[in-house]
Write a protein that binds this DNA or RNA. Structure first.
Lengths: 224, 224
DNA sequence: TAGATTGTTAATCGATTAACAATC
DNA sequence: TAGATTGTTAATCGATTAACAATC
């Protein structure tokens, strides 16, 4: 009759919570940078546009405890968030598509800061293959499979035009990558075992346009 | 005792619906490109990972009617979606930040296709000011206010580093722009009357990483 | 101590799904 | 016609919020 293993909140967080956690983390790091040490659920709520109830409910899923009358210690909160989001382990990324969008991602400093390393860049365009992106060289798609294995890649980012995205997704899945970030404007078809997150500027703009026109609406909305 | 004005479904769509509408639109246009004429709620649901019930519920908010035994006429569906999303009226965009990300957006052909025209590009970096992005020339921030007025701009896109994003947002708000797409990794503080949609690669990657690690989870997720 | 803030339970709210009559 | 599919109502499910005892 031993006690069950210490902490085990990690069963499976609800989707809305998972989407808010990164925002708490960003908020916590902003606060830390600003020199704060403690933050209350009311303050966090105000900063992110949530009720303090939601904040406490969300943070209760984490391996962190608040202190009555003081709130949460920011450093501990950030590390708990990092742990829960698996931002402590490094993720290795292959980027397919070395256009402006791809380059923006590959050269984006914040990625490293949050544990994502772009370890390979591929493209189909012969003119682009061989050019350099930061310290990497753009490789042809034929080198994909080797790169994924050699570099221990677990995430694929698709930054190619819509027409090519499905083929790229298929190639990535074939090499065993099971997490895709799709920036192209198509609905990908992938096996159930593959995780896909879509992020699309046009869609965000459409949502914004709707909100802008829908008279009287206001407020802040989180998309990704 | 006249009838109330024809159709008036536009009271205020629930947020989850607004976020799905662009996906239906993309789906509809893919189908149309593939030569299809009709689509049923079951097919749409399968394509987007939704139940047919959700699809019918969502589409019932639109100014379109399905036909029993056939489904929805794709062309009509697309135009109803376009109308509801206000993708028929043109939106004029000012882009702040002419780095790779900014250029990716400014040169992104799909934007035009969906009614968004990048009408001005600004940057703070003197080295970048004066260079051209497509047919536009990068202007200094001091030209922002004039550009917004002259070009009739209603949407601002923030594609600058996190440190500068708040100042850019303030400047945009000051010129009267009341819809912002924020691509920087900060939580913006804006007046209640201003619409903000956030889109952040790092956040999407974090969500993906969580899903990848959370054993046993699978499926497709829409972020933006 | 008194008062603020947590963690958590219960109540509310809203979104998704099921079900089915109407209809082509 | 028979069968498939809509539009919509009602039931279910889940997320957010309110409330409050515990506590620092």
């Amino acid at each position: 009759m031993t006690e069950p293993l210490e902490h085990r909140p990690q069963t499976k967080l609800p989707d809305p919570v998972v989407r808010r956690l990164p925002r708490y983390l960003i908020g916590a790091q902003e606060l830390r940078a600003a020199g704060a040490t403690w933050v209350s659920s009311v303050e966090l709520g105000r900063a992110l546009g949530l009720t303090s109830s939601t904040v406490r409910q969300d943070l209760s899923h984490l391996d962190v405890e608040g202190v009555a009358k003081r709130g949460y210690e920011i450093a501990k909160l950030a590390s708990a968030l990092t742990r829960t989001l698996r931002a402590d382990r490094e993720h290795r990324v292959v980027l397919v598509g070395a256009g402006f969008l791809g380059r923006a991602i590959a050269l984006h400093g914040d990625l490293m800061r949050y544990g994502f390393e772009v370890a390979a860049v591929m493209d189909v365009n012969p003119e682009v293959i061989g050019t350099s992106v930061g310290r990497l060289t753009v490789q042809p798609m034929s080198a994909l499979s080797n790169a994924v294995k050699r570099e221990n890649i677990d995430i694929g980012v698709i930054a190619v035009p819509a027409e090519e995205a499905q083929a790229v997704a298929d190639a990535l899945v074939a090499t065993g990558v099971s997490a895709l970030l799709n920036l192209a404007l198509v609905q990908l078809r992938v096996p159930e075992t593959v995780q896909v997150v879509e992020e699309r500027i046009v869609v965000s703009l459409q949502e914004l346009a709707y909100r802008l026109c829908a008279t009287g609406s206001r407020g802040q909305v989180q998309v990704g």
